[in-house]
Amino acid sequence: MGKILTYVGIALAVAAVLAGIIFSSNRTSSAVNKPPEAAILYNIDDYKKVDPALIGYTEVRQIKPAFRELYGMACDADDKIYVTGDEQLAIFDPAGDEISRIDLGHEAKCVTLSPDQLIYLGLNHTVAVLDRNGKALRSWVAESESAVITSVAAGERDVFVADAMNKVVLQYDPAGNLLRRIGEKDPESERPGFIIPSFYFDLAIDPDGFLWVVNPGLHTFENYTFEGKLRASWRKTAFDLEGFGGCCNPTHMAILPDGSFVTSEKGLVRVKIHDPTGQFRTVVAAPNQFAEGTVGLDLAVDSRGQILVLDPKTGMIRIFAKRSS
């Protein structure tokens, strides 16, 4: 009796050992071979899917500038494209051929064209002004050396500089004299100021000549008079197409001739158009059109209403035009 019990015990124990080995190796291998969809449980795939009917633009052309890193882009009245990358500025004709290339000595994170067709560059803490041939006209340090210029906009008599580090918009005259500081945190009016959790802070001048500034931390577009007074604003927080999600979106913005806003986002990488009141209008490029890890899509609009997207991940200027139908 005792003997039988002993042998049954041995058999059970051996069975448990073998079952344990099989079980544990199964578990490891099945977990390892699990398809990523099931294993990566945080996903925003649902938000990446966009109904094709909502995409109003289509990609028509790509230009690949010979740069390792791309930073900023602008388009002038003749549809020439200005791209900054590495430590240079390259100018392309509308056909996409490089016309010239200018060595800057430093990285220019943003570029813009003034109405009188001068090139304004933001070189870290310095604003530089060139004529269209690339000849240096003047330059000035934006307020302090701690400044990090992420965007410049130039009007007829004013130059607006977005300083992400100090969370302020600086207004200069074309000669580089500081006129005023716009949008600072104001305890009296309980205005929180610009909330800028990462180095994305964009501004632009609309066709009516008003200044629009993105307050990315609040998903807000703020409209200022040239005297620095807040005129209007709209805010859209949403993960879906209606608005902007995450901590700091949109990262870039451009304004169409009719006053609509073209926006680009990080995290959920997409380019959309909102009408002047902030209502979502159409999608230019859906998240699935960008590579994993894309961030920092600078935008420009040409005279034909085409939308130019600077895609640093693939190193290309991608041009989107309205769908014909």
Binding site: R101, D103, H106, A128, S139
Partner: peptide, 24 residues
């Protein structure tokens, strides 16, 4: 030197802007 022979434009940035270039 510029990278391409056809881009002939030379650009000299004003020296004052480049003080403290390490901090940049």
């Amino acid at each position: 030197a510029v990278v391409r022979p056809k881009s002939w434009v030379m650009f000299i940035l004003l020296a004052i802007c480049l003080i403290n270039s390490a901090a940049l």
